[in-house]
Design a protein around this nucleic acid. Sequence first.
DNA 1: CGGGAGCTTGACATTAATCAAGATCGGTGG
DNA 2: CCACCGATCTTGATTAATGTCAAGCTCCCG
Lengths: 256, 256
Amino acid sequence: VGETGANRGAAAVPQAGSARWRVHACSSCEARSSSEWGALCGDDVRVLSEARIVHTYRRGQAIFYASSSCIGLHCVQQGTVAIRKTGPRGDALMLRLATRGDTLGYRTFFSGKPYAADGIALTECTVCFVPRRAVMALLESRPEVGMRFLERLARDLRESEDAQMRSATLPLRAQLVHLLLRLRDDFGEVHDDGTIILSLPMSRRDLASMLGTRPETITRLTKALEADEVAFFKGRRATIPDIDRMLDEVEPYSEA
Amino acid sequence: VGETGANRGAAAVPQAGSARWRVHACSSCEARSSSEWGALCGDDVRVLSEARIVHTYRRGQAIFYASSSCIGLHCVQQGTVAIRKTGPRGDALMLRLATRGDTLGYRTFFSGKPYAADGIALTECTVCFVPRRAVMALLESRPEVGMRFLERLARDLRESEDAQMRSATLPLRAQLVHLLLRLRDDFGEVHDDGTIILSLPMSRRDLASMLGTRPETITRLTKALEADEVAFFKGRRATIPDIDRMLDEVEPYSEA
DNA sequence: CGGGAGCTTGACATTAATCAAGATCGGTGG
DNA sequence: CCACCGATCTTGATTAATGTCAAGCTCCCG
């Protein structure tokens, strides 16, 4: 897990020379079109492409640290990044995951304050860094980009409030099922017979912290789900034989 | 508490004629300068002033309903508004309060989706409504307004994540103290001898729902705080004899 | 093959939810 | 002004859920 602890407190600013593999231009980046940068066209894409700095991170490396200053945006081109917030007493909460196509750090960027969370690569990652100056220039030349970010932030906020509601009203078991269902989009694989395999990118500890609980509780919940044949767990792999069983778990709490 | 239940499901669109009192123009509105509209000047303020519709709400009236569509922004000029989200099974969470100078509904506005929460007047309120068209026009002529909203959303998101962290790690007692300390800004009054009087704008039920707990628990916590002479409660009035006592309550959970 | 982090398991303690009365408050109408 | 009413709040007994602690296990990694 390596250099996670190194150069603590300073922003991890990727240098141009540190890109380890040649990657394609932004114009041909599939991750871009589905992101906030999808609003760009023609020349603007070239501007973006020339300004960005591609960087590769190994498992466990930090893309940015809490309390360091934010000097641009990151775009995840490949891999999975964990956004973790460390509490006063060392307890870390996993706030969310970022995967291919996600822009990273925009909350901090627009707030003008230092990062409030760490961004750690959970897998090998390819991430493009777009310096502040370039972001501002693009925002000015393409107001739609700003609108996209407004939409994005508004959506995030709604999701955050939904999560708040869930944690206030749902039993942990239902919350876990809900989380697994959400992870399905990014980490699920459907087999021919309909069973779903989830390859979870994170540890039990992270799983627990995403629900604001302890690893022991997660273990107990997974055992309970296995006992009820809702899902089966082996290491970081979850097998869901019947999606309807999962949906039934949360159904009592959705609508009416 | 009147017409709360009336015309459910339709956006509460204030009519121009429904303003009950003549109010000053936006140019002289103190609430504006501290809001996102503070970036406007000269002509733009006039545009805003002519487009907005002033409306007065009585205690308990809805300013907007969840699932109705968002056709503009609201600015609170006077009074307090509760933003409540109702869960699937009737349980309502109070998400936040809006007071003088707060813009209301911007999350929904930028998300392009229907409201996800209700906005209910807790006191008599004066609220200006700015139609979508005017907002968009101002966003276009004054990019800074967009930036201000980006900042605002980014800040909200950070606060929401802080809240998530608190609810995951702090004991309820500390969470309650923290909430009271935050309410101090808008609803506190400092006496000569240093004691602070909080005039809470909401019921115990709302207080409970802000922490994701039950009214009974709030009662027990307030009793415990009284027993420890940290704060005293009578109805919707809280008396804090010594602010340091309050700070001591949360201190063990802040930093190191 | 060894070491260590992460995971599992069980016993136990603690917290907060639930349920059910009773008390109090605030507004209303006599 | 007072009596009444419903809603809200309080209180206590009980139960359920989750946290805590400690020990042993497993799996991954070197």
